[in-house]
Protein backbone atom coordinates (compact mmCIF):
# COMPACT_ATOMS: atom_id res chain seq x y z
CA UNK A 1 0.00 0.00 0.00
CA UNK A 2 2.87 2.41 -0.65
CA UNK A 3 0.57 4.23 -3.06
CA UNK A 4 -0.44 6.30 -0.04
CA UNK A 5 3.12 7.63 0.21
CA UNK A 6 2.95 8.56 -3.47
CA UNK A 7 -0.41 10.31 -2.97
CA UNK A 8 1.06 12.35 -0.12
CA UNK A 9 4.01 13.25 -2.34
CA UNK A 10 1.70 14.38 -5.14
CA UNK A 11 -0.26 16.56 -2.70
CA UNK A 12 2.94 18.15 -1.37
CA UNK A 13 4.19 18.89 -4.87
CA UNK A 14 0.83 20.30 -5.99
CA UNK A 15 0.82 22.58 -2.95
CA UNK A 16 4.29 23.85 -3.85
CA UNK A 17 3.30 24.47 -7.44
CA UNK A 18 0.22 26.40 -6.31
CA UNK A 19 2.49 28.65 -4.29
CA UNK A 20 4.51 29.40 -7.41
CA UNK A 21 1.91 29.59 -10.15
CA UNK A 22 -1.39 30.60 -8.54
CA UNK A 23 -4.29 28.44 -9.60
CA UNK A 24 -7.43 27.30 -7.86
CA UNK A 25 -7.99 23.78 -9.13
CA UNK A 26 -6.07 20.87 -10.59
CA UNK A 27 -7.84 19.02 -13.40
CA UNK A 28 -5.19 16.42 -14.07
CA UNK A 29 -1.79 15.27 -12.87
CA UNK A 30 0.52 13.65 -15.40
CA UNK A 31 2.85 11.17 -13.77
CA UNK A 32 5.75 9.28 -15.27
CA UNK A 33 7.02 6.22 -13.49
CA UNK A 34 9.82 3.76 -13.96
CA UNK A 35 8.94 0.19 -14.92
CA UNK A 36 9.79 -1.10 -11.46
CA UNK A 37 7.94 1.49 -9.45
CA UNK A 38 5.34 -1.09 -8.36
CA UNK A 39 2.48 1.39 -8.66
CA UNK A 40 -1.07 0.09 -8.90
CA UNK A 41 -2.79 2.85 -10.82
CA UNK A 42 -6.35 2.12 -9.72
CA UNK A 43 -5.26 2.02 -6.09
CA UNK A 44 -3.43 5.30 -6.57
CA UNK A 45 -6.52 7.10 -7.92
CA UNK A 46 -8.76 5.51 -5.29
CA UNK A 47 -6.53 6.71 -2.45
CA UNK A 48 -6.03 10.13 -4.03
CA UNK A 49 -9.80 10.60 -4.30
CA UNK A 50 -10.30 9.50 -0.70
CA UNK A 51 -7.60 11.73 0.74
CA UNK A 52 -8.41 14.85 -1.31
CA UNK A 53 -12.18 14.76 -0.81
CA UNK A 54 -13.50 18.23 0.01
CA UNK A 55 -10.12 19.85 -0.66
CA UNK A 56 -8.96 22.04 -3.54
CA UNK A 57 -7.45 18.93 -5.15
CA UNK A 58 -10.73 17.04 -5.27
CA UNK A 59 -11.60 15.61 -8.67
CA UNK A 60 -8.12 15.70 -10.21
CA UNK A 61 -7.39 12.79 -12.55
CA UNK A 62 -4.09 11.00 -12.21
CA UNK A 63 -2.66 9.90 -15.56
CA UNK A 64 0.23 7.50 -15.31
CA UNK A 65 2.71 6.91 -18.11
CA UNK A 66 4.78 3.86 -17.34
CA UNK A 67 8.17 3.73 -19.00
CA UNK A 68 8.17 0.41 -20.80
CA UNK A 69 11.78 -0.51 -21.24
CA UNK A 70 13.45 -1.45 -17.97
CA UNK A 71 16.58 0.64 -17.61
CA UNK A 72 19.65 -1.19 -16.35
CA UNK A 73 19.35 -2.04 -12.71
CA UNK A 74 21.17 0.32 -10.42
CA UNK A 75 23.59 -2.35 -9.21
CA UNK A 76 23.58 -0.83 -5.77
CA UNK A 77 24.10 2.86 -6.45
CA UNK A 78 24.55 4.46 -3.09
CA UNK A 79 21.86 6.92 -2.27
CA UNK A 80 20.80 8.07 -5.68
CA UNK A 81 17.15 7.31 -6.26
CA UNK A 82 17.12 4.63 -8.90
CA UNK A 83 15.44 5.75 -12.12
CA UNK A 84 13.63 2.44 -12.45
CA UNK A 85 11.61 3.02 -9.29
CA UNK A 86 11.22 6.78 -9.51
CA UNK A 87 7.85 8.48 -9.92
CA UNK A 88 7.85 11.98 -11.40
CA UNK A 89 5.15 14.59 -11.86
CA UNK A 90 5.54 15.66 -15.47
CA UNK A 91 2.88 18.34 -15.50
CA UNK A 92 -0.30 19.64 -13.95
CA UNK A 93 -3.41 20.74 -15.82
CA UNK A 94 -4.83 23.58 -13.78
CA UNK A 95 -7.42 26.32 -13.88
Amino acid sequence: MHELSIVEGIMRQAERQRGRHRFSRVKAVDLVCGPHSCLAEETLQFLFDAVTRATWLEGARLRVTRLGEPPPMPGGGEGAPAPDVAVYIRSLEVE
Binding site: A86, V87, I89, R90, V94
Partner: peptide
Protein backbone atom coordinates in the same frame (compact mmCIF):
# COMPACT_ATOMS: atom_id res chain seq x y z
CA UNK B 1 -7.18 25.52 -18.47
CA UNK B 2 -3.40 25.65 -18.66
CA UNK B 3 -0.57 23.24 -18.26
CA UNK B 4 2.28 23.65 -15.80
CA UNK B 5 5.43 21.66 -16.42
CA UNK B 6 6.79 20.24 -13.17
CA UNK B 7 9.22 17.37 -13.81
CA UNK B 8 10.00 16.73 -10.18
CA UNK B 9 10.14 13.55 -8.20
CA UNK B 10 6.99 12.85 -6.25
CA UNK B 11 9.05 11.63 -3.32
CA UNK B 12 11.49 14.54 -3.38
Amino acid sequence: MRKITVMERVLA
